[in-house]
Amino acid sequence: MRDVELSSQQKERLVGKVKAYFDEELQQEIGGFEAEFLIDFFIRELGASLYNQGLFDAQQVFNEKMDELGYVIQELEKPEL
């Protein structure tokens, strides 16, 4: 698995969301520097689990679509004489 790397725009947006969450839900202020460290912590600690769940979900969708494709192919079969 590759390390999760966020663009500066993505990180900036997440920092804003973390700061807003702390303000609205916890009635605490958090600085941008602290919010960025918190984001890095969550990525490091939760990233692999979320990544693996995404792979599992993608595999499930892929398997469902392959089953559907199998049925479509069966419908294309011509009767043998």
Rank of each mutant, 00 (worst) to 15 (best):
Y21L: 12
G47Q: 06
K65C: 08
E75I: 02
Q10A: 11
G32P: 00
G54L: 06
E25H: 07
E5G: 05
L46D: 06
L46Q: 06
G54M: 09
R2H: 15
Q28L: 15
I43K: 02
D40W: 05
E24I: 03
Q53W: 06
G31Q: 02
D67V: 08
A20W: 06
A35I: 04
Q10S: 12
Q74K: 15
D40R: 04
V4F: 03
M66E: 10
V61E: 15
F42L: 02
A20T: 08
E25Q: 11
M1K: 08
Y21K: 08
F33M: 09
E5V: 15
E64Q: 15
E29W: 01
I39T: 02
F42T: 03
P79F: 11
Q9K: 05
D3E: 14
L38A: 14
K11T: 00
V61G: 12
E80R: 07
L6A: 00
G54D: 05
Y21V: 04
E5Q: 14
E34Q: 04
F62Y: 11
A58V: 07
E80M: 02
K17D: 09
L69Q: 10
R13V: 07
L46I: 01
M66C: 06
D3V: 13
V61N: 13
E29P: 04
L55A: 10
E36W: 00
D67M: 10
K65P: 01
L26G: 05
S8F: 05
D40M: 08
D67P: 02
E77S: 01
K11L: 14
G31H: 04
V61K: 15
E24R: 04
G54C: 08
I39L: 09
F42Q: 03
E5M: 14
E75H: 10
L55R: 13
F22G: 02
Q10L: 07
K65W: 08
G31E: 06
M66P: 00
Y51N: 07
L69M: 12
P79R: 13
F41H: 07
L50H: 09
E77A: 09
G32E: 06
